[in-house]
Each structure stands twice: as C-alpha cells, then as structure tokens.
Design a protein around this nucleic acid. Structure first.
Length: 605
RNA sequence: GAUUUCGUAGCUCAGCUGGUAGAGCAAUACACUUUUAAUGUAUGGGUCCCGGGUUCGAAUCCCGGCGAAAUCACCA
C-alpha cells in the first residue's frame, strides 16, 4: 500500500507497531525472550541457525566408553572429542558451570570454565553468550577433553562450543534423582498422553524410555526380516490403493483416482495379492504392510496399523505354527536377552514349544462343556447359559467364536495356539483335512489377545468362489464387513496355487507386548488423533478482504476480535460504538472514525 | 457407540459448601570455581478448554460443545 504509506508514514509505522505487539501477545513470555536472545546473538555476530557442518568425533555413550578404557593409562593423552546435542540442564556456579547435553545415545555432562572459554580480558562469550543467551533446548556443538569429576561422573571439559540451533520454545523440564535404594525418581514427568502423542518430538526429547520403545519396535521388525530372509523368502510390495478391498473382514477407506475416474480403496489386507505371487511361482513371499480399516479407535485400534503377512508354498498350518514359535522366541531373545518378557502383571514366556489347544478343547477346558458334537440349537442354548448374548442371525461359527471370546481368550496369558476354527468364520482358509465343519486355522493368543492368525490357505477355486458368494450374501443382508468377490483372484487360483500356508502378525500388537505398553498409541510414533482445533487468527489480509481498511485492524484486534468468525458475529451498532471508543482510547487521532454504514458493509462482506 | 473421569502458568499439579487465581520446577535479576532434582534471595508470568445459564459475584454450580483418558461392545 505505497500511497497510504507515503501519505502517512508515521501512522503506518504506529499501526505496524500495534500489529507487532499483538502478534507478540500470543507468545508466552519465555518465547518472546528466546526470540529476543536470537536478536542479541545476531548483534554479537553469532548466527542462531548456522549453516555449516559441525564435525563430530563421538556420541555421548561411545565417548564415555572410550574414556573408561584408557582412563587408568596415564601415558595416553586425554581423550579429546567433538560432540553435539541438545542442552538439557544448566547448573551455573559463577565462573564455572555444569550442563548436560543429550544426543542420540544419551546424556553427557559438560564442564564450562570462564577462563578456559575466554582466556583474554573479554569475558563476553562466557558471561553473555553462554550464561545469558543459551537456553535449555538449544542445540550446541562442543569440543573438549574428558575427565572424571570428584563425584565420579565422566564429564567433558569444554574448550570451545558453538551454538548450532536456537530453540524458540521452552521444553518441559523433567528431572530425575536416585533415592537411597538406587531407584530413579522422576519429577515433573511429561506425561499428558494427548500432548505426548500430538507433539511426539517433545515426548522423544524428554522421555528416553519412549525413544527406547521405538528402537525395540524397529529391532523386532528387523529380527523378523532377518529370519525370513535367511529362509530365502522374498520381501515384496503390493498395492495400497486397491480397486477391490479384500483379505479381511473390515470396512475400508474410500478414495478416488482422478485420471481413471474410479473409486479406489486403501487396503485392509494384502493377502489376495501375496497369494497371486505364490501362483506366479515364488515359494515364499512376505510384506510388512500398512493396512487401513475404517473402524473404531481404542487403545488396541488405530485406523492405520502394520501387519506382516507371509505365504509359503508346499506348507500347511502345522508347519507354520513351528515357524511362528521360533520367530517370536527369537524376537524375545533379541530384545530382552531371554524368552521371558514382563507385560503388566505377568511374566510371559515365549520359549518353545507353546501350548496347543483346539478351539473345542479350549472351551471344554475353561467352561467344562464339550460343544464339539452340538448342533446349532444346542449351541445356542449353551451359549446363552454361558452368558453370551445371542441373536437369530448368529450361525454355528459365530456362536462358537463368541463363547471362545467370552470365556477363553482373555484367560490365555502364556502364548498358546488355538487351532481348528469353524468354517463360517474363515472364508479364505482350507477345510480341515479330517474334521467336518472346521478349517485348518490357528491363532496365537498371548496376554489375552490375538497376536497372529494363520491357515492352510484355501486353493480350491470352486470352493473359494462359493465362500465369496456366501460373503456377498452376508453383505447384501447388511454386513458391512463382508468380503467382496474378487474375480481376478479367483482367476489366479484357477491357474493353480500350490498348497500354501499363510500367516499374519499384527506388528503393533506384538510390539505392545514386547515393550510392555498399554496402548497402541505408545508403539506408533504418530497415532491418529482428532484434529487440534485452534482458532484461526485473522491476518490484515483477511480483514482487507472484507473491505476493512488496514488502519482499523489493530483497533479491531485490540477489541479482542481476533478471528473472522468472532468479527462476523459482532452486531453493527456495538462494533461501531466499540471501534470509535477504542480509537479514542488508543489515541489514534489520525484515523478517522468509520461510518456506521461502513461497519455494516464489513459485516455483510 | 455407551458409561465414568479429566481439561488451571512452558511442565507437574493444588485450589473445600461460589467471594480479588496458588505451589514446585522452568524463566528473569544478583551471589557462588567440581555441581548432581545444585543452593540462597528477589521478580515477572494466566482467555482457569470454548459457549450459554443461575447468582450481587463462577476456575468452582447447571446446560451445551470441543478435546483426552479409563472401562465395556466391535474389530487386528
């Protein structure tokens, strides 16, 4: 707005100043101060966000370990290192100070001495830059040599340091101490689940145990990958955007492809694609697959989650049970150095072999009732007697499943294979080789929850078509989770799929167990959350769009009308009145009062 | 989806039957050369989630909304 500027530069500057002050009003005192410190650093010729690289020699832990090895060899020169990390604490004592930085490996204490950092007359670098202009949260690089303090802590005597990144927001301060028994006591833990999930970066900075959980999760995946690669199986990738969704009973997310002008679904499983690859001639394929299910959220359910699915030709579900046992046992050993893992109140032992029960045996064991020979009527009566809520739509399979879910699943703490499921619940599993009405399927249950699901895969295309068709019927009756009929998958089966064993393991669920976390949100970096709702602060441009002259904006903001929504809700007479009043209060004599008509036009615009 | 609980300073939390908003840590200022949640003294910091209602008066009581957690149901 140059003409306006030229005509009344003083006024313009004054208005700018008001806008600036208003902007600052939204920042906390500590944030303002840190911005100010940036300016002071620049004035001293220090860039708070320098570009050049900072060469590191070590990380905190490796530096300490290296020091320990040569500590009692006086003939070796002191270990000099260059480290970088985030400042996590300060203990300033006049012309000497202790601080801690945290890098990827952990923390190391730093010792600063004024006369080392500022050997000459000018003590600015210590007194001002270090003591006044650095804050907890800033990232610095340090050079120096390691020594051990009188209290025995390995410490870096800093000979020079460089600010690498200024942090403009204050971090939560979490402090730890040891009591007489040597237990760590945490003070002011950053524990609010919502903030931790929404700002995971802060959670990771201040909660080292959280960083460790995610390291374990990655190691868990790596163990599986190594194990399967060693068996010669091929890690593959299959489509996430699928024209038909299948392979599981779940409601999908739906999206649209513009060029093809077609509906696509985010995958709920990758099973049908992996089996196509078995048809194609690979003997073993697996994929760590992000799947998406448009269903409820809870501490066990996130809309996107990770599964590994594995398919191996010429094998059956018995063989697959052995693989699962061995692979999961290896995970426990790798992560914990033993087969026993503490989960909540329980010690869970993953040592092979795991207990194996058929579903009927499990029900007989926990309810004392043998249901294996019952028909649907008897089953329904038994279910009701056992406290299962039934309705007419529930068939044999569903009834059995409900009884199992209510009376058995949550009682199975130690890893246990449950085998031989009713055929109605498993449209992709092969009929049992000897037991009518059942399929060759197993789940591993652990800590009262399913951790895997596997079967001898159905490879009879005619049987598969019938199972799909009955699913389609369920769908027409309103079951939103029923599977759709995938013609191309059937076509693939018609070319012949070898007998195949298939497996799915929920990586998130297994990670929860292996890291002793109560919520799936604690093993996902960025769990799905409702959007943060924050009032959108209107800019000068937003107000101008309504026809409000720039000179009125600071007055409107001063009135507390920060969002267009609030502004629009104002009544013309009151707004006009307040505006004129505030103009006077702010002593903006050069700004003319708007007319009542103008104000009405803004609110209409 | 249902029920219960919660939302107060940068963080962790007090705040009683309604009466001017509090503590510790963090921040700011001063002191302090090996500290360990460093310490001492002083100072500043708030849309009490949002919107209504009751009331002379609401962080507090009531209603509605938003967000979160726990339990239950479904699902991996």
């Amino acid at each position: 707005m140059p003409s306006f500027k030229n005509r009344n530069k003083a006024l313009y500057l004054r208005l700018k100043n008001y806008s600036f002050k208003l902007f600052r009003m939204q920042l906390s005192e500590q944030e303002l101060l840190r911005r100010q410190k940036c300016q002071e650093l620049r004035a001293l010729g220090i860039d708070p966000f320098p570009a050049e690289l900072f060469p590191l020699t070590h990380h905190s832990e490796t530096a300490k370990r290296t020091f320990e090895k040569q500590e009692d060899k006086p003939e070796v020169a002191p270990l000099t290192v260059a480290l970088a990390g985030r400042l996590m604490s300060f203990r300033i004592q006049g012309s000497a100070s202790f601080a801690e930085i945290q890098d990827e490996q952990g923390r190391i204490q730093l010792y600063f001495r004024r006369d080392d950092l500022c050997p000459g007359e000018d003590k600015t670098f210590y007194n001002t830059v270090f003591k006044k202009l650095l804050d907890i949260g800033d990232i610095i690089g340090v050079n120096g040599y390691l020594f051990r303090t009188q209290l025995g802590e390995i410490t870096l005597h800093v000979t020079s340091f460089k600010l690498l990144t200024k942090a403009l927001r204050p971090l939560p301060i979490v402090k730890e101490a040891k009591d007489e028994a040597g237990n760590t006591i945490t003070y002011d833990a950053f524990s609010d689940a919502e903030t931790r999930y929404r700002q995971r970066y802060v959670d990771l900075i201040v909660n080292p145990q959280v960083r460790e959980v995610f390291r374990k999760r990655t190691r868990l995946v790596n163990v599986m990958r190594r194990y399967l690669d060693a068996l010669g199986y091929l890690e593959v990738e299959t489509p996430i955007l699928q024209p038909l969704y299948g392979g599981a009973a779940a409601r999908p997310f739906k999206t649209h492809h513009n060029t093809l002008d077609m509906t696509l679904y985010l995958r709920i499983a990758n099973e049908l694609y992996l089996k196509r690859l078995i048809v194609g001639g690979y003997d073993g394929v697996y994929e760590f697959s992000k799947d998406f299910r448009n269903e409820g959220m809870s501490r066990f359910h996130n809309p996107e989650f990770t599964q590994i699915e594995l398919y191996v030709a010429y094998k059956d579900y018995d063989w697959m049970m052995n693989l699962v046992e061995e692979m999961v046992e290896q995970i426990a050993l790798e992560l914990h150095g033993q087969t026993t893992v503490r989960v909540g109140e329980n010690d869970i032992n993953f040592a092979r072999p795991w207990k194996r029960l058929t579903m009927f045996e499990a029900i007989a064991h926990y309810t004392g009732i043998d249901i294996s020979a019952m028909d649907e009527n008897e089953l329904r009566k038994t279910a009701e007697k056992l406290g299962v809520e039934t309705d007419a739509s529930m068939g044999k399979g569903k009834l059995i499943d409900e009884i199992f879910g209510l009376h058995c699943e949550r009682k199975l703490i130690q890893p246990t294979f449950i085998t031989d499921y009713p055929v109605e619940m498993s449209p992709l599993a092969k009929k049992h080789r000897s037991k009518a009405g059942l399929v060759e399927r197993f789940e591993a249950i652990c800590n009262g929850k399913e951790i895997c699901n596997a079967f001898s895969e159905l490879n009879d295309p005619i049987d598969q078509r019938e199972r799909f068709e009955s699913q389609v019927e369920l769908g027409m009756r309103g079951d939103e989770e029923a599977m759709t009929l995938d013609e191309d998958f059937l076509r693939a089966l018609e070319y012949g799929m070898p007998p195949t064993a298939g497996l799915g393991i929920g990586i998130d669920r297994l990670s929860m167990i292996m890291t002793n976390q109560q919520s799936i949100q604690d093993v996902l970096f960025f769990p799905q959350m409702r959007p943060e709702k924050k009032a959108q602060i209107a800019s000068v441009t937003d107000f101008k769009a309504l026809g409000v002259a720039e000179m009125y904006v600071p007055i409107i903001q001063k009135l507390g009308l920060l969002t267009i929504e609030d502004f629009k809700k104002a009544t013309p007479s009151k707004l006009h009145n307040d505006l004129c009043g505030m103009r006077k209060k702010m002593k903006l004599e050069a700004v003319p009062n708007p007319t009542r008509e103008e104000v009405e036009n803004w609110l209409r615009g």
